Simulated assay, not measured.
Amino acid sequence: MSTTAASRAFGSVVSLGCASAVAAYVYSQLHTESNTMDRYFRAYHTAESEASRRRVFDGAIDDPRKNLLNILSWKSFPHEEEKK
């Protein structure tokens, strides 16, 4: 293997390693933040908060959590599964 080919291979390995490290860091941060937000939402999502939301929004507007653009709400909420 010539020095030019070795330096190219080494540069590729270093670049791939750096990209993998950045991707792993971003994934870790997003996972941590997701867990934090899930804890906040779980603490708020109670029967009392849903009753309050219904008093304010029921009939006035469509549920904003059902918006096509809100991909975080694509999973159904537990209280809706109980109604079915």
Rank of each mutant, 00 (worst) to 15 (best):
S15F: 06
L16C: 07
E82A: 13
T46G: 04
A21M: 10
A19S: 11
F77W: 07
M1Y: 11
K83L: 14
K66C: 03
L30T: 01
W74I: 06
D62G: 08
A51G: 00
E80G: 08
D62W: 01
L72P: 00
T32Y: 00
D62Y: 03
A47T: 04
E50C: 03
G17E: 08
E33T: 09
I61M: 09
F10E: 13
C18E: 09
C18G: 08
N35C: 02
V56F: 07
V13A: 15
S73M: 06
D63I: 01
V56T: 11
F57P: 01
I61E: 02
N67T: 08
S34I: 07
A5C: 06
S7A: 10
C18F: 09
G59Y: 03
S73R: 02
R42S: 13
M37K: 10
G11P: 02
Y25W: 09
H45R: 11
Y44Q: 14
M37S: 08
D58F: 07
V14H: 09
I71G: 05
N35P: 02
E48N: 07
E48A: 12
Y40D: 13
R42V: 09
S76D: 13
R8Q: 10
Y27I: 04
T4K: 13
Y27L: 12
D63G: 06
A5M: 11
S15I: 04
R55P: 00
K84G: 11
E50A: 00
A24T: 04
A47E: 09
S2T: 05
S20D: 11
R65D: 11
S20P: 00
H31I: 01
M1D: 13
S7L: 12
S7F: 08
A24E: 03
S34R: 10
L72W: 09
Y27A: 14
H79S: 10
T32P: 02
K83D: 04
S76W: 04
S28W: 01
